[in-house]
């Protein structure tokens, strides 16, 4: 497969097969979750077909929270231990998290148009997600605008400050305006099954993307190290 051979001192990429299997399984599970969400789950009584986007929307939101928590963990451990692998974890998670939050905002808007009759409203959860998105977009911009170990330290500081800000933002937007977000109460077993399958499928897919991103960043670090050794 795509495994790099060990010839000529080039390090071998271990675990390529496992990652490929993970990718294949998550592809199958995503296909299954699409079937579960679009066909298997019964139609919601009030919202009709529009509700089915929920099976994509919620797993993305869950995934983005996990990603931002990983940014926080990576940042703390990077400042503490100084090992570059923690920084790689933080920056890979931040990218995946921003991607997921963008998707959460987009799928939410698509749902809100038929149900709330508007693409956007300054409802607390929407506002919260938007501010969260801005913090981690700023994180990615900071990575772009700074370099090397200094850039990594800066990003780690933002990763920590941003995470501590999350509960305060949450509190402030909920004090600021009333919520209209639907709360799933008394869910049909078919819907619940579809939801569980799709959360599981998406989490597997995110893990796969994160691992690939992580491997890519690690390779980049290795290339940088080799360049330094060659004196360039």
């Amino acid at each position: 497969m795509s495994a790099v051979s060990g010839k000529g001192g080039v390090p071998t990429r271990k675990g390529d097969n496992l990652v490929n299997i993970l990718g294949f399984v998550s592809f199958l599970l995503i296909a299954a979750s699409m079937y579960m969400g679009l066909v298997f789950a019964p139609e919601e009584a009030v919202q009709g077909p529009a509700q089915r986007i929920f099976y994509v929307h919620l797993p993305q939101a869950v995934g983005s929270y996990i990603a931002f928590f990983l940014v926080f963990l990576g940042s703390i451990f990077y400042l503490w231990k100084g090992d570059v692998k923690w920084d790689v974890l933080a920056r890979s998670s931040a990218e995946v998290g921003v991607l997921l939050t963008s998707l959460v905002l987009i799928t939410g808007s698509i749902w809100a148009k038929p149900i709330w009759n508007t693409w956007w409203t300054w409802e607390p959860r929407l506002t919260f997600t938007l501010v969260l998105w801005m913090i981690y977009v700023a994180y990615l911009m900071l990575r772009w605008a700074s370099e090397g170990k200094q850039g990594a330290r800066y990003a780690a500081v933002l990763g920590i400050v941003g995470f501590f800000d999350v509960p305060i933002i949450f509190l402030s937007v909920f004090l600021w305006s009333k919520g209209l977000h639907p709360r799933p109460a008394g869910m049909d077993p078919g819907m619940l099954a579809a939801l569980i399958v799709s959360i599981f499928a998406f989490l597997l897919l995110f893990t796969y993307i994160l691992i690939q991103r992580w491997r890519w960043e690690t390779s980049k670090e290795m290339v940088e190290e080799m360049k330094l050794k060659l004196g360039r």
Partner: peptide, 8 residues
């Protein structure tokens, strides 16, 4: 960097 953090 600053504006999103100081939203609250």
């Amino acid at each position: 960097l600053l504006f999103p953090i100081i939203v609250p």
